[in-house]
Every structure is written in structure tokens, then in C-alpha cells.
Nucleic acid binder design. Sequence first.
DNA 1: ATTATTGTATTAGATGCTTAATACAGTAGT
DNA 2: ACTACTGTATTAAGCATCTAATACAATAAT
Lengths: 126, 126
Amino acid sequence: MKTFDATTPIYLQIMDDIKKQICAGHLHPGEKLPSVRDFALSQGVNPNTVQKAFSQLEQSQLLFANRTNGRFVTEDKELITQMKNEMATGYVTEFLNRMAEIGYQKDHVISLLEEYAKGEDTDVYN
Amino acid sequence: MKTFDATTPIYLQIMDDIKKQICAGHLHPGEKLPSVRDFALSQGVNPNTVQKAFSQLEQSQLLFANRTNGRFVTEDKELITQMKNEMATGYVTEFLNRMAEIGYQKDHVISLLEEYAKGEDTDVYN
DNA sequence: ATTATTGTATTAGATGCTTAATACAGTAGT
DNA sequence: ACTACTGTATTAAGCATCTAATACAATAAT
């Protein structure tokens, strides 16, 4: 049972979660996903909402479906690393843009980040 | 005439824009804002949408309204710097969380950022 | 005083997201 | 063959957002 941000469509948040889990390696290439119904149950949302998220991820080749066998993560590792890079650069540019919009130039941003990096270090992967 | 993200309510985007402009110093304490109608016209949205955004910013003390004289930016500079800090730390933590979620620990993030910082430097303020 | 401009309120309709309740088709497991 | 599970599709309802068209109240400008 996850909590969702009320200001963003749930199906988009589900898509984002799955993409992140694939990027992070928590979902492996070829791995089977829960069924639409099970996933909906576990997230506390309607199966239709999950179906919408899954089918859109399928359109972008990240998932593929066997008619009655279930849905699986793509086995195209190249596609996955590509997506990971795109998401990373997207986050970076969005972050720098936002910081610039409120008056922080890049030097300040980096100093700020270095402080935060010293603070805690709760990384598990890599 | 701005462009809005189709996946986020317009009134929230307007609120965010104004908050950023106040943080960046593009809108000064006590400065008068365009009228609801003018602002709506300039942004290509409905006056009701602007009214919603403005009135919510008023609730958080960032703006105040004179019944028929218009709307103005708060003159509480302390409040503004406080908001700026909150937004900055919010952006930083959100950014680091996102990067961690896709498998980048903080060391990598900083290296990445330093590359981007070298690339371009289009800062105008500070 | 009159006019124009301000914020504010109301009603109605269109659209997208979400839920709910079903139903159908294909296939793995038995 | 039968059962259970899979993805998929459809219809209806509720809700928030957005737009549109007005209207009212208060005041600055004239």
C-alpha cells in the first residue's frame, strides 16, 4: 500500500516508480511483474489505473505482455541503460533550472550539495 | 503567453512561478502584481484559474490584496528568505532522492554536476 | 457623481482521472 | 476437459480542473 501525491495522476506515478525500479536494478530484465489485479491490490488502487500505467510502459518498450502469462520487464539492457541516462540528465537539468530560477547559480548549488553529501550517506547500490 | 505542463494543474504552476519570481528577486516586496484579468490574459488562461492561484498564495501570506487596488507581494522579507531556503532544500533533497532511486549515490551525483557546471554558465543573478 | 478597474462569487459545461462492476478471450496447470 | 489466472474491454458514476459567461461590491481616477 503506497501513498501517492494527490496532485499527480496515479498512473503516471506508477509508471515513474516502475521505471525507477528498473533503472536501479530492483526489477531485472525479463523479470515477471505482478498481475494487474495483484499490483492494484498491493497499491490500493483500481485495476484500471494499473492497466493504464502498464500498457503505456508497454508502448515505450519497457515492458512486454504475454496474453495470459503475465507481464515482464524488457530484456533489452541497452534500452534500460539509455533510459537511466535520460532520467539522470533530466533530473540534473531540471534541478539546476529550478535552482537557477530561485536565484542560485551553479557554484552555489555545488557547494550546497557537498554539504548535503557530507551529512548522511545511505546508499545501498554501487 | 506561457506554456503549461499538461499533467499538473495550471493554478499550481502559476503559484510555483510566482513563488520562484519572488525568491529570485524579480518580484520585489510590496510590488504590485497584474490584475487577475490582465494576468489571465497574458498567460492565456481563465481568470478563475488565476484567482485560485492568487488567493491560495494570499492564504500563505506571500501576497496580500487591497479590495479594489490590486494585489501586492508581501513586504515581509524574512518570510521570503525563509521560503527561498525551504524551496532550495526541497529541490536538493528531492533531487538526491530521485538520483538515489535510480541508482546514483551521492558521490556520482556530485561528479555529474561538476561536469554540467563546466558546460554552460548562463547565470544572470548573483 | 460618474466611470473604470479592482477583487470576488456563482452557475454551467467539457474534459481527464479514478473507481466500480462486469465481461470476454487466451492459456498454463491440474 | 476443467479450472484458475492472465490481459483486455466496456459502461457508468464521482470528482477536480478548467473554461465561459456573468454579476456584484468597493474604490481610485476623472
